[in-house]
Design a protein around this nucleic acid. Sequence first.
DNA 1: ACGTGTTACTAACACGCGTTAGTATACACC
DNA 2: GGTGTATACTAACGCGTGTTAGTAACACGT
Lengths: 347, 347
Amino acid sequence: MPDRPTSRDVARLAGVSRTTVSLVLNNVPDVHISPETRQRVLEAARQLNYYPDASARRLVSGKTSTIALVWHRGPDRTYRDAFLPGLLQGATRAARHYGYYVLFRPIEPDESDDAWVELARGRHTDGLILSGPRSDDAALLDLYREGFPLVLHGQLPGTDIPAVDVDNESGAMAAIRHLLALGHRRIGMITNAPLAYIASRQRLEGYRRALEEVGIPFDEALVHCGNFDEESGRQAMQALLALAERPTAVFIASDMVAVGALRALREHGLRVPEDMAIAGFDDIATSRYLTPALTTVHVPAFGLGWSAVELLIRIIEGDAPSETQVRLETELVVRESCGASAPQGKV
Amino acid sequence: MPDRPTSRDVARLAGVSRTTVSLVLNNVPDVHISPETRQRVLEAARQLNYYPDASARRLVSGKTSTIALVWHRGPDRTYRDAFLPGLLQGATRAARHYGYYVLFRPIEPDESDDAWVELARGRHTDGLILSGPRSDDAALLDLYREGFPLVLHGQLPGTDIPAVDVDNESGAMAAIRHLLALGHRRIGMITNAPLAYIASRQRLEGYRRALEEVGIPFDEALVHCGNFDEESGRQAMQALLALAERPTAVFIASDMVAVGALRALREHGLRVPEDMAIAGFDDIATSRYLTPALTTVHVPAFGLGWSAVELLIRIIEGDAPSETQVRLETELVVRESCGASAPQGKV
DNA sequence: ACGTGTTACTAACACGCGTTAGTATACACC
DNA sequence: GGTGTATACTAACGCGTGTTAGTAACACGT
């Protein structure tokens, strides 16, 4: 590898000082450089194929122009992978739009929960997005209190750390209202995960509230917990089918879990939606290709990524909005599994 | 944000020089520091919660300890997203294993094809992985000739740039042999993409060779081209069904395309595998949940990511292997769509 | 002729670290 | 008592840039 040209080389070739090179190439405003000199510098830089050294620039400017996306891979990692492409695309597009790079840092199950701290403390990045945060993380709170720019993807109850998440409760309500509109009155639920997860509690609360709206009392027997994966859905559905009085519809707060529930129904010889209506949540890539195609609540992964980065960068640049808790709306996607006819042309 | 401690602060607190601090904290070998001093430095660093500044370290060492994954989002972007979680996980795990960070840089369709060049020229990274490279990229060849560490994911015919890819030909052969073993003799094919893509040509070649092995002549009428998406598969299958003498099995070199083909078969009232056997390629997340579950050729996304990074880092560190063209083996995953019984316990 | 202001630049510092070359002391050996 | 060597450190340089403070030349009004 031949020696890279530095700004000194450009200066020499253009017959000016290094300062002038810097002023010209960075287009510093309110500085007087003659058009001829400007041209000479530009030409010299072009001729040498000069690119300023990122490390030097970072050091002197104190800005890394980089943000990190910290991706916790916990017990829910397979579930969360479903959103990775969309979220990452939203995040990188927003980052690029504002002139930032994105460092991707998964935290594997065998790593310490705060292995990401060095990214902040070592000034590798100007800010962090933490996806799938743990609440018992003292390092997180320290950093936040010191004013380090931080945005969570997913909520952390009991803190006011800026966070971006989907509106789980209203999403669940939309699904239930859809089932109610189709005439169902005995509606069961399988949660996406144990109730230790806040998203599970919120989706359950949406279910409860939507029933309450129409005067249907909450019946604990109709609710079972899923645990991210297919198998948990299969077991939960089996439990519901063992009930003396079965529900006519089940809201399953995770499409991945719904896949297992559908299997249980097939194993019991029950048809969907004729014998039982099913509504899901998440709208993962697979959902539209299931038989029957799953009616579900779409989670805007791209929007979550974009919003998180946009919020983070505003915080980094000292332009934080007054409201730093962002909740994105979901959208009900009607397909086949509830028996409603889909709008023309939609898949 | 309070002022970050620097190595000078640590030195002052420990009552030694900055040099000593650096020597102790970096565990420089063959240098004599008394155990007491060593302890004092460590204690001071701990007390100040000192983390060395990454930018300064990069500048002085000339190493960024960062590699970039450049992800071209072309016409095949939806297809390629299916492998992103696996590939990224493999890449980041390998990177971390060798002490590197990963910068993720998608190139959107509206960006210049060589928008990634500044990452290399500006010394943002020590090396690059280019996923989905374009062959007409002069900047790529320049960089390679200058010795900048580079690894491609996906092949670029006519160059010897280090590359990691899946063995498309042998994967296709495995699928065809499977269909042959089940008694099929008239086997059609729908390619994953137009033949401008090398992977398409290679999978087609595998199909051709596997048939040739058993003396079945290549019949052009049985081959139609897909174009990454579902709809192209639907149309290609319709064309095959319009044939006077239909195939009894079709190898579809992309699961996403196969989804559309399955739909076409359903629309024609044909059962899979009874009326027609279907074998796919890629093993995307959806494949196992299709009805019928798709027998397909598994692509090791994690392995591709890991191998690419491992190769890249060996090149960066001057330890390049003699063979820099890596081809990973695929694995046939037998499910339901060909009518063979799956091995016990496998899904 | 002389201050004042504008234009067009440059010298020199600082960012925080790794590292090389060098110094001071202690100890051993003949 | 001088030489040599190991030990335990430190002073100072340089990485490549952005930026601040400053200088030289020139025009202009009085």
